[in-house]
Design a protein around this nucleic acid. Structure first.
Length: 816
RNA sequence: GCCUGGGUGGUGAAAUUGGUAUACACAGCGGACUUAAAAUCCGCCGCUUCGUUCAUAGCGGGCGUACGGGUUCGACCCCCGUCCCAGGCACCA
């Protein structure tokens, strides 16, 4: 995609050769977004490598296999540009959500729709405040004397025994100023990662702030803690702690000896069900106070403690006896009456940070002036292009040090010397609209125009879609790329550039192709990757790979050097485990390479690459060629005559039935893009033709001609070269027209009709034989035949039939 | 840790979605053709000393879709729980 648009990077020189036109429109739209407030600037916290002075990618920190294992990771706040994808959260959700009336992406795989729904993470709850009198150094109330929290479990508000805030929360910072122990804890939190995965897996730790806030309903004082598991970026960076009904709070309370107060009781023996939460019901059978209530053990977490809607409120004063929804409504109403809170929808989705401290990527078109701050580059000066003579030294963003990039730059407002913004845009920006630019690639006046309208709207509409008809991409893009592209399309729509809501009508997500990964730690503490062909595995007795050895000396490393086996992972340039299809093409030809790739697994499946089976595909194509040429004379004769009325013998009718069964299956599989069974269908067809003893009759000649014509057309999309040649050489092109224009073959329903069908016979669900009945036999006739059959009599051994189940066309099951 | 998938012969996989488990191939084994090799063609190919039998042939039985339960006349498919693998987790793209 990027190469087609001229965005290729020469990896050896590590110099971007950008397409200035594409950069120009990225920058142009970015400035439009700044104008509309869709783009904005703020500081963000990132993982920072202080040795190389670069931002670390998650993979480099999380999995421990990263390149910077020796480096100290720290957090750093750096400024960057953000896009307000959160403004579009509701629409992004509506269009993708399974079961939503507004959903339009019905041609997307359900799993991708679910992943996006969870990623957007709409959650409806209550946002309310704990009032307090805490003042900062200047004497002003912090947060106007209100510490806001968000919860989906307002019904458990009477069980609050503490509150926890994020390490970056103003109350935490305020308390740390006079509390060295807390300050040290905040520093410790900074050393950890910033990603969701890291936060979720690290040990939950906390520290007292010594501050207290007031419970909004009871007026009790509640102690405020700092928790390393509280995210500043979600909600208000503070949570209420209800250890009795939240697993994480429970663990936290046990660890620090905080009180645990049960406020929801669940009846024992009554399973939790959504229906149990009827609004207004004031008593549930076996609920609190009755002997059957489940026992609450404050030393041991049990899953029912957190079940929503399973029980009723207890130890909650006026709310006692209320079910989940009734209690939540009552609490929300009381908070609203006090002016301290209201129902609110919160999203997991965060704004899209597009700044990258990298050399490649579209430069962000901003000029920094000492007097006027960040000033947009005037439209007439676009595009800002990357210097072509910049060679990164592996440390920091080279654009900062590249004086040529800043030479002659002046502030657009005052004309004083100024410097360029050195951040570049996330390359996801490029992939968010390249497909629209494809429709209008040479337009130098506008970002997109008539071509895009035609292909993305008019043409799509004619075909029953609202955007591109079919998008194909790896499953690894299920969330980020696809969500960004959807967002970007909606922004372009709102700016009047396109007339569609969604870019991709139908989606096929390919599975990843995996290969073995071999690594070795370098002396410097980095990681070196080896190609699978460079090493030789050694195994334990069970055949499990323990490790590998270098086959031949490489650089300074002697043959036999121990190499670590990391298991399988996605093919990647950096991991040296990719496979070049060119090797297969050179050895077997493009038709075989394509056929094998299609045959080896369904497109959605994850695949561990192995070309051991490619011989089979090669052999098959040679058999196709061989069959066609063995019968070449007969076929040429047949294609020049009309044999449509030639009578078929009984064996011929059977062959024709087989042919049309395959045609039906293959057509269906092409439509559902199940290409591996397309290929096996073609193999079946050839096997059937090959096994048939053709005689010299017109009927057989017609069959042979039809069979080859079907095989060639079914195989054409997979193996165009071979089939095209056969089609032309055997006279089909003369008789029917060029293969490219030949119609897709239609299933002849008459060919599929059978006089007799075979049904499986089961006794008590176990296969005991089979049964042949006339195709039109009704249920009672089949029943009678089954009961009278030898197989049933033998299997039943005199037992009386109690029930007979007939599945038309499939089987008969007799229960005795 | 969370979200989303997946786990079926020695291997890649199929099963038209609750109805004959292992299609189609690869590898392997046996055979034909050949001076020989390659190529090609034919046959076998889940487990089981459980029964019958001289037989390790044939026929029949039992067990088998990661593991443990459940629903059903019937479960690879639906439900509950467990284990393992992969993708994503916001700066790899």
């Amino acid at each position: 995609q990027m190469q087609a648009l001229g965005l290729a990077i020469d990896w050896r020189r590590e110099v971007a050769t950008c397409d200035p036109t594409y950069y120009k429109w990225n920058q142009w739209l970015f400035l439009k977004m700044l104008e509309k407030g869709i783009a904005y600037r703020k500081t963000q916290v990132v993982n920072w490598d202080p040795v190389d002075q670069t931002v670390l990618a998650n993979e480099q920190v999380i999995d421990g296999k990263g390149w910077r294992t020796g480096a100290v990771v720290e957090k750093r706040e750096i400024p960057g540009y953000y896009l307000k994808i959160t403004d579009y959260a509701q629409e992004l959700l509506d269009h993708v959500q399974v079961g939503n009336d507004k959903a339009t992406l019905k041609g997307w795989p359900e799993r991708v729709r679910l992943m996006q729904e969870n990623w957007i993470g709409k959650s409806e709850g209550v946002r309310f405040a704990f009032p307090h009198e805490i003042k900062d150094a200047s004497g002003a109330l912090i947060g106007d004397g209100r510490m806001f929290v968000f919860t989906t479990r307002a019904d458990t508000i009477m069980g609050v025994t503490f509150c926890a805030v994020a390490p970056e929360h103003p109350l935490a910072l305020h308390a740390a100023a006079t509390n060295p122990k807390l300050a040290a804890f905040l520093e410790e939190c900074k050393a950890g990662g910033t990603t969701e995965a890291e936060l979720a897996t690290q040990e939950k730790k906390g520290e007292r702030t010594g501050l207290f806030v007031t419970h909004p309903l009871t007026g009790e004082q509640v102690e405020v803690w700092v928790g390393n598991y509280v995210l500043m970026s979600y909600g208000d960076g503070a949570v209420m702690g209800v250890p009795a009904h939240d697993e994480r709070d429970f663990a936290f309370a046990l660890k620090y000896g905080l009180p645990i107060k049960q406020v929801v009781a669940v009846a024992s023996g009554v399973p939790a069900a959504p229906g149990a939460s009827d609004a207004g019901s004031t008593s549930a059978p076996g609920a609190a106070g009755t002997p059957e209530a489940k026992h609450f053990d404050d030393k041991q977490w049990q899953d029912w403690y957190a079940e929503k809607g399973a029980g009723v409120a207890v130890q909650s004063g006026k709310y006692n006896g209320l079910s989940f929804k009734a209690c939540l409504d009552a609490v929300a109403a009381d908070l609203a009456a006090k002016g301290l809170g209201e129902k609110k929808t919160t999203w997991r989705l965060r704004d899209w940070g597009v700044s990258r401290q990298r050399y490649w990527g579209t430069p962000i078109p901003i000029i920094h002036c000492a007097e006027h701050g960040a000033v947009p580059v005037p439209e007439k000066d676009l595009p800002v292009i990357l210097p072509q003579d910049c060679v990164p030294d592996g440390s920091g963003n080279p654009l900062i040090k590249h004086e040529g990039f800043h030479a002659g730059v002046v502030c657009p407002v005052c004309g004083q010397a100024a410097r360029r913004e050195t951040d570049t845009m996330d390359t996801f920006v490029d992939s968010s609209w390249y497909f629209m630019r494809y429709c209008d690639p040479k337009n130098s006046e506008q970002m997109v125009a008539a071509g895009t309208d035609y292909w993305m709207r008019d043409q799509a509409k004619a075909l029953g879609g609202s955007g591109m008809d079919q998008y194909i991409g790896g499953i690894e893009h299920a969330i980020l790329h696809l969500l960004y592209a959807r967002f970007w399309t909606k922004v372009m729509r709102d700016l009047g550039l396109v007339k569609i809501d969604e870019p991709f009508t139908k989606l096929l997500t390919q599975g990843m192709v995996l290969n073995h990964i071999y690594t070795r730690k370098t002396d410097k503490g980095g990681i070196e990757y080896f190609w699978p062909h460079e090493v030789e595995d050694f195994h334990d007795d069970a055949g499990k790979v323990l490790g590998a050895k270098l086959k031949q000396a490489k650089g300074d490393l002697p043959a036999g050097t121990l190499i670590t086996y990391e298991g399988v992972g996605t093919m990647s340039k950096s991991k040296n485990n990719g496979v070049d299809p060119q090797d297969l093409i050179e050895k077997y030809g493009a038709d075989t390479a394509r056929l094998y790739t299609m045959f080896t697994a369904p497109p959605e499946a994850t695949l561990e690459w192995n070309d051991a089976g490619v011989e089979g595909s090669y052999r098959f194509l040679r058999r196709v060629w061989g069959f066609a040429h063995k019968h070449a004379d007969a076929l040429r004769a047949a294609t020049s005559r009309d044999l449509s009325q030639a009578p078929l013998r009984v064996e011929g009718q059977k062959l024709r039935r087989e042919m049309h069964m395959v045609l039906k299956q293959v057509s269906y599989d092409y439509e559902r893009m199940q290409y591996n069974t397309v290929v096996s269908g073609c193999m079946k067809l050839l096997n059937a033709l090959d096994d048939f003893a053709f005689d010299g009759s017109d009927g057989d000649a017609a069959l042979r001609c039809e069979g080859v014509s079907l095989l060639v057309r079914l195989l054409y999309p997979a193996c165009p070269h071979l089939t095209h040649t056969i089609w032309a050489e055997l006279g089909f092109a003369r008789a029917v027209g060029d293969l490219l224009d030949a119609p897709w073959p239609q299933v002849d329903a008459a060919a599929l009709v059978q006089d007799e069908i075979e049904l499986m016979l089961q006794v008590n669900g176990k296969l005991r034989g089979s049964l042949t009945v006339p195709a039109g036999a009704d249920k009672s006739a089949i029943e009678a035949a089954a009961l009278a059959s030898e197989a049933f009599v033998r299997a039943a051994n005199g037992a009386a039939p109690k029930k007979v189940i007939v599945v038309p066309g499939r089987l008969v099951n007799i229960v005795v």
